[in-house]
Each structure stands twice: as structure tokens, then as C-alpha cells.
Amino acid sequence: MTINRRTALAGLAAGLSLLSLPLAARAEGTLEEVKKRGALRVGVTQAPPWYSKDPKTGAWSSGVGVEMGKAMATALGVKFEPVEVTWGNAIAALQGNKIDIMFMLDATSERKQAVDFPESPLLYYSLAVLARDDLAVKTWEDLNKAGVRIACPQASTMDRWLTAHTPKADIQRFPGNAEAIAAFQSGRVDAVCLFHPPLLAARQRLGKGKIVVPTPAESQPSSAALRKGDREFQAWVDKMLATYYRDGQTQKWYEAALTDFGLDPKLVPPVMKEMLN
């Protein structure tokens, strides 16, 4: 068949248009791909208690994201396939079809431009303090006293919260998390205020202090990032996250991961906001 120049150009334009579409719009949906592949590819990165690799075997053996990924794979009748990424390149790995899901990414407006998130929260983490063992802390008002020294990163959510809720305290502001934690370690402050995940590693490393979520609790949800445009997979993940959270399974995985990490779950805030009240 003779193809004239106009027909060839039209074909080329159609091909380029197809390439510009999101992967989910050009291929099978994620659920179909996962079942055909026989594996659910979950992004993982060394970050206990969310993901943890056994240094002896190299296996991704524990963590909330690992256990949740295994449970979802089982529900689909496929294998759990961990794919090592970083927090920085996880979204690119989703866009490039290297992974199918990445747990523990917050659904920020910027990220929503590149990937999708389910409606149901994966878990909640809260604004907390790592405080001296002998410092009585249950509420923010307990910290709102002259002579109580609190470290936080400058110009952060923590800084704004402390400024509004503990104006009587001696709020000491530092360039970042590491400097604020170092001030607590050295005894220059009585407590350090951060969202509680980084405080877990600090408490485990320092071997001192207690992590408290003062009331009223200030909590925010974390989520799971998905490739953009696949509504069927998004709805399925949403249903699974809601079920795990409602049944308390997410909290159980979290507590097991804390134990593996060397922390007593009783000394660490829960990840269900209903348990904070």
C-alpha cells in the first residue's frame, strides 16, 4: 500500500501522542500486570520501623511497609518482590514502572502532581517530644513553663507549634533535626520536639529519654504512592489500607517492627490517632 507524506506524518503524530500518555493509560492496569507477572513490586529503603533489611541474609525481613506489602501480595495470590529505592527516587521508580507501590510517603500537593494516593490513611504520626526521663510531660501545658528548655528545627512546623502552645518555655531553635537532637543528647535542653518517626531512631541510638505525644495531639497521616491514572488499583489499595487500619493490623505490624528495632512499643506513641486520646 502506498503511504503518502500526509499519512506518514499523521501516523507519527499518533505514535508520539501515545508515548505522551501515562503508562497506566497505555497498558494493562496494575492489578492485571501484577497478576500476570506473579509479583507485587514494593519499593523499600533501609528505614526502621518502616523497612528493615537483615544484614546477615540481605532479606527485607521486617517493618510496616514490608509486612503490608507481603499481606497485599498474599491477597492478590502473588509473590512479594522488594525493590530497593531511596526516598528521593521512589516517585521516579513508580513513573518508570520499576515498582508498583511505595508505602510511607505523605500525600503532599507537590507529590500529587506526579503520583496518586489512596483516600484512606496508611497510619498517623504525631508531633512528639523526646524528653528527659524525669520530666513530667502529658500535655503541651506541662511544657509551657519558664525554665523548660525545648529544642526544635528553626522555621519548621515544630517551631510554629511550640511558639503558639508553649510561649513561656525556653524554645531553642536549631538549623535542623540533627542539631536539635544533639542539644538534647548533650543536656543543653530538656526535650526535643519533632514528628515522632525521627525520634524513634534518636531514642534507640541515645539509649535515654522518653517519647511522648503531648495532648492535644497534633497528628498527620502518611500514605502509599501509586502510579498515576490507575483508578482500579487506587481503589483496591484504598480498601486494603482502610481494612488494615480498622482491624488494628497496622498498629500490630508497627509494634512488631519496634520490637525488632530494639524499642519497647509501650514507650513509643501509637500510629492510630484514636489511641492517642
Rank of each mutant, 00 (worst) to 15 (best):
R205Y: 13
A131Y: 01
A128Q: 05
Y125P: 01
K138Q: 13
L143T: 00
A107L: 06
K35M: 08
G176L: 02
P270Y: 05
A155I: 04
A224W: 03
N89V: 09
A178D: 12
P269Q: 07
V237I: 10
L18H: 11
D238C: 03
D170N: 05
T2K: 12
M104W: 15
L194N: 01
P269N: 10
V213T: 07
V44Q: 02
A151H: 00
R246F: 10
T74S: 15
T250V: 09
P269E: 07
M272A: 12
D133Q: 00
L267K: 15
A8R: 14
S223C: 08
G77V: 05
W161I: 05
K70F: 09
A183E: 00
A59E: 12
K112L: 12
E179A: 07
V44D: 00
M1T: 12
M104I: 11
A178I: 03
A182C: 02
G96K: 15
E84T: 11
F195D: 09
K53D: 08
S186W: 04
A146M: 06
A71H: 09
R26K: 13
L123I: 09
K138E: 12
W161K: 05
A75I: 03
L23S: 15
N277L: 13
R37N: 11
D106E: 12
P221G: 08
L23T: 10
S126Q: 09
P197T: 08
L226I: 07
A183P: 00
R132T: 01
T86S: 11
E119M: 15
P221Y: 10
S126P: 05
E179R: 02
T30K: 08
L241A: 06
T243W: 06
M158V: 04
A90S: 13
Q113P: 11
Q172D: 00
A73N: 03
E218C: 13
A14I: 10
T166S: 02
R246E: 13
Y124M: 00
A27P: 07
W236Y: 12
D54L: 07
L31T: 09
A201L: 08
G209T: 01
E141R: 07
K266N: 12
A39N: 09
E67L: 09
K70D: 06
R26Q: 10
L200H: 09
A155Q: 07
S120Y: 10
K56C: 12
G147Y: 02
L130W: 02
R227K: 13
S61G: 10
M72R: 03
L40V: 05
G96V: 08
L123S: 06
W236G: 05
D230G: 02
L200I: 10
A93Y: 11
I99S: 02
M275E: 14
E28I: 15
L16W: 11
S20I: 08
W60H: 06
G207W: 06
G96N: 15
Y245M: 06
W161D: 04
L9E: 13
V129I: 07
N4Q: 11
A47V: 15
V271I: 11
Q204S: 15
K56N: 11
I211A: 03
K208S: 03
N144Y: 02
G11R: 12
G38C: 05
A257I: 03
